[in-house]
Amino acid sequence: MIASDYLIAPNWPAPANVLALSTTRKGLAGYAGASVGAYSHFNLGDHVDDSLLNVAKNRAALLAACDNLDAIVWLQQVHGIEVCEVSDVRAAPVCADASITRAKGLGCAVLTADCIPVLFCRIDGGEVAAAHAGWRGLCAGVLVNTVTAFNCPPQELMAWIGPAISQAHFEVGPEVYRAFLKEFSGVSKAQIENAFRPSAYKAGHFYADINALAQCQLQNLGVAWVGGGDLCTYADADRFYSFRRDGQTGRQVSLIYRR
């Protein structure tokens, strides 16, 4: 991977054979990106009505910029809880919200524009995974399923939470609060309540800290190292796409692979 101010590298103690990054809308060093308008500049999502040719150019540039990366597995994300194990690149996108691999040179990737991207690796570097966690998938258990998909106990894993919407900008209705209280596993009622701040402007609404909910769940599962969660897609329009902020917009990618 080339050094670039435009790519965000997790600050985590991953083994040397594991490479991970999140992109920004600013592109790469020497390549601003092909997308224009609402998608400018480095949109990697092919489902947002951007030019497919421009998206293909951006994806090719990302692949070329990453050392020892042979291919990227792109998912058809549906806000679900399916985790697919991948060993090669498939002609069509896999319908899932997380992927895991032991293969070298094969990138696990998730597209986001406010939802939480979580990158996982084993402490020994033997497996890596990427998960897409919107509030629905998070509540339903996509991160639990991803942890369970590894061929090791959670105590041998680490997880990094990439750019996502922060609590200050994520207003939700009472149905979201009730869903977490009823369905969210492995997290105490007190921890859930602490992640929902009542709105002072709209009765029954809350500002939800989905980053904190993800961190609590991963820590309670026993994941050895959990970090990140401090980059807000909504607040940083210069670097990140945000669906909640802009509506029509692109997608950044969070990517992890073994070399």
Rank of each mutant, 00 (worst) to 15 (best):
H79V: 14
H79M: 15
H79A: 14
H79I: 13
H79Q: 15
G80W: 02
G80V: 04
G80P: 01
G80S: 02
I81C: 08
E82W: 10
E82C: 13
E82V: 12
V83Q: 06
V83L: 08
V83H: 02
V83G: 10
C84Q: 11
C84W: 08
C84A: 15
E85F: 13
E85A: 15
E85S: 15
E85R: 13
E85M: 12
V86N: 00
V86T: 03
V86L: 02
V86R: 02
S87K: 07
S87F: 11
D88Y: 14
D88G: 11
D88Q: 13
D88H: 14
D88E: 14
V89L: 15
V89G: 09
V89H: 14
V89W: 15
R90D: 08
R90Y: 12
R90I: 09
R90H: 12
A91K: 14
A92F: 12
A92T: 12
A92I: 09
P93E: 06
V94E: 07
V94K: 09
V94S: 10
C95N: 12
C95M: 12
C95F: 11
C95L: 12
A96W: 01
D97F: 06
D97S: 05
D97R: 04
A98T: 03
A98N: 03
A98S: 06
A98L: 00
S99Q: 06
S99T: 01
S99A: 04
I100P: 09
I100V: 07
I100E: 03
I100K: 05
T101V: 00
T101R: 04
T101E: 09
T101Y: 01
R102M: 09
R102T: 03
R102Q: 10
R102P: 10
K104W: 11
K104R: 10
K104V: 08
L106K: 04
L106Y: 04
L106E: 00
L106W: 07
G107W: 09
G107I: 06
C108S: 00
C108P: 05
C108T: 00
C108N: 00
A109W: 10
A109L: 10
A109K: 07
A109D: 07
A109C: 10
V110R: 01
V110F: 02
V110I: 07
L111E: 04
L111G: 00
T112G: 02
T112C: 07
A113G: 00
A113R: 03
A113Y: 08
D114Y: 07
D114K: 04
D114L: 03
D114Q: 06
